[in-house]
Nucleic acid binder design. Structure first.
Lengths: 276, 276
DNA sequence: TTGCTCCTCACGTCACGTGAGGTGGC
DNA sequence: TTGCTCCTCACGTCACGTGAGGTGGC
């Protein structure tokens, strides 16, 4: 029998760690002196300790390790837990690789512009969003009010509230002079029945989006588009997916429709991108 | 000016998160009602919020983000922080990939043996260890006592204590009948001068080691070696680096040397492995 | 006797989540 | 007036690390 300090040295963990595992019941001293409270361990406990550390290194929590080590676990259950962990690790790697790509984008931008404040392009990940969607072809972007009107009416009729900002998606691959294929999208949390016009769907995750926030009247938003497009090209990307407009501050209403000239409008333009 | 709930919805974060950022000074409400304590935000604060979230997504802590956003940061400092983060993410990816490989090893083992308890082979990562080392050629493994003796004397003479278990490394690539190239290694934390025989070095990290804990007299340890070797072959690995023996419970002393027959000895055998 | 090891609280970490209990605004 | 939003504590998370203050063992 050896004292806690020696067992700690042997297993290359801290004394505090051993006390912690004792408290959790992961590995108990073979004997605890009833007067001094001293914990005594055995060399034979080393393999258990080794296994605990190995499982921890695989990313299991101490709670999970407790369950993995408890008797009565079949090989199938064990395999299932490992496979779950495997999937989680795979996900983590994918996430970190996404991060790396986005970070590289920031770095390239800094190297080009020498200062971050000059042009407020930000690369970010956009999580998926559930909502009500309506898609149609309209002559020009301002005419998307023809879609928003019915969508809002539909939501109102079903007493469903929006849970976030309005989003427009521009589905045309090439620039159109007329006949724009536009999807209007209202985020919702509640259940909503579908109709021939209104569908309920999940906007997909965008791993990397180049974004600018435009503040000003909608009519002159082209400038922001132009510079964002230039930025994408100059930084070695290409657009991969429909650009989105997110209404940060909605424009005032004029005759029941969004004002094209309200200078207080704020819109975020998001271009999904991949490295060219 | 909008209330906290609306700004939260707009930025897709929780109200609690906004209060937290306020507390940390990351993003302050433009106005706080002095009687009710209500926080009021502005749409113009959205780009800052967006930037904070983007930086957080890259893995920066809120504390770091505070510093990144504070004025007076040159482009070089900014780039340096990003590059540091980049390196950390690269490391994380490498770590997770190592985990994945070790986890696969556990899975393969389970598929083969149907139960984990049958053979106690554990795949684990071994961190680097600093210590005093002495290497020499001896007729047979039991003769490594000729190395341990002088190493212990040297440590004693310099009043340096071991900080962990004794380790032997077997450097021969092929099986030897005689003349074994063995390194004996004593972990230490303190400074120790080197000598022609004794060097101070760091045992390298082993990303994946197949390990068994053998309990019994040293003479019959061959069995454990044999089955570990078989395990390595059967599970699609090959040995990549000198096998190590870690003394978990030292054998008794016989005439000043390690007893070869003490049944209470416990040794962990570690084979560094890579996928074949 | 002295230094070393061990003990039990108790608090800190990080970015919030989750109540409890109370109040302002429409 | 009622329900909704907001407020401030205060505690929990996870795996320990870090003292504080005290005692046993050689």
């Amino acid at each position: 029998m050896i004292r806690i300090g020696d067992f700690a040295k042997l297993s290359r963990v801290s004394v505090k760690t051993l006390r912690h595992y004792d408290e959790l019941g992961l590995i108990k001293p073979v004997r605890v002196d009833e007067f001094t409270g001293y914990r005594y361990y055995d060399y034979e406990q080393y393999p258990l300790m080794s296994r605990i550390r190995a499982l921890q290194d695989l990313g299991f929590s101490l709670d999970e390790i407790g369950r993995l080590l408890s008797a009565g676990l079949t090989s199938e259950q064990m395999q299932a837990m490992l496979r779950l962990r495997r999937a989680e690790i795979g996900q983590r790697i994918a996430d970190e690789e996404g991060r790396l790509a986005r970070l590289d984008a920031w770095l390239r931008q800094l190297e080009r512009t020498e200062t971050m404040a000059e042009y407020d392009v930000v690369i970010k990940r956009i999580p998926s969003i559930r909502g009500a969607s309506m898609r149609g072809v309209v002559p020009q972007p301002p005419d998307q009010n023809r879609l928003w009107g019915p969508l809002f009416s539909y939501l109102g009729a079903h007493r469903v509230e929006m849970s976030g900002q309005c989003i427009s998606l521009y589905h045309d691959e090439e620039y159109q002079d007329k006949d724009w294929d536009i999807e209007v999208f209202a985020p919702i949390n509640d259940e909503l029945p579908e109709s021939p016009e209104v569908s309920v769907r999940e906007l997909p995750v965008v791993e990397a989006a180049a974004c600018v926030v435009y503040a000003g009247p909608l009519i002159t938003m082209d400038e922001a588009y132009a510079s964002l497009s230039r930025w994408v090209g100059e930084n070695g990307y290409r657009v991969a997916g429909p650009p989105r407009e997110v209404v940060v501050r909605p424009p005032a209403l004029e005759n029941g429709a969004a004002s094209q000239t309200d200078p207080a409008s704020i819109i975020e333009i998001q271009f999904p991108v991949v490295k060219a």
